[in-house]
Design a binder for these strands. Structure first.
Lengths: 110, 110
DNA sequence: CTATTTTATGTCATATATGACATATTACAT
DNA sequence: ATGTAATATGTCATATATGACATAAAATAG
């Protein structure tokens, strides 16, 4: 991973280091962050596609507007669990979530 | 959802109620639990397929044997985040995780 | 421009997840 | 059977995620 991308992640609060020289993420660490960021961006896209406000989505899952903002911003202090709940409330099915993760193309169909 | 299945979930610690009459989960709540349970079972299957002990998997993600046992038992006091980290360390890619979620067939290919 | 809505950012008290540990239970050898 | 490794179950102190709230900043009317 290049230093620019790493810096971005560190600024968002991700613990990027701990791999010997603090210069590289393991493939698994990268994949984990990638999954989180992709799901986070899917939430934002789908929410907007439906014309929902962050407040509306928040209410639908018993959360708060600021929490949704943090999720969509890729804040690491948020869980995949809450993200999945958000997607499901947006009407995205398990199957569609799976398709989104497996297809590298950016989900035309949802 | 039938009462038998609900009882199983409640025994595992899931908050099943809060939907008016405490008899039904919303489709989204069900889907969320289903995703967790399927991923949990995928972890167990893939770990065994590789001949890893729970302790070995735990060490690979900086966790503990008991935590892996709880994940594989479907304990709700565990996060999707940790589960995904486990899968990735088992060599399951994001793409394969996606396929597993989208295909309803039980992952011959992984 | 000005008002109003929406989103972003920060803080805080509380809830939940965590690894570590002890120990029970089970599987699997020899 | 008897030991030995693997897994399950429970507890605890600590770390992290949480919703709520305040408020700033941006976007979108009008």
């Amino acid at each position: 991973m290049d230093t620019k991308k790493r810096k971005e992640l560190e600024e968002k609060g991700f613990k990027v280091g701990s791999t010997a020289d603090f210069l590289e993420l393991s493939a698994e660490e990268e994949a984990y962050i990638e999954i989180r960021l992709e799901i986070s961006s899917l939430i934002k896209i789908q929410r907007n596609k439906r014309g929902w406000t962050q407040q509306e989505l928040a209410s639908a899952i018993g959360s708060s507007q600021s929490r949704i903002a943090k999720i969509e911003a890729g804040d690491p202090g948020t869980s995949l669990d809450l993200m999945i709940k958000a997607l499901l409330q947006l009407g995205i099915s398990k199957k569609q979530i799976g398709k989104f993760l497996s297809d590298n193309l950016k989900m035309k169909t949802v």
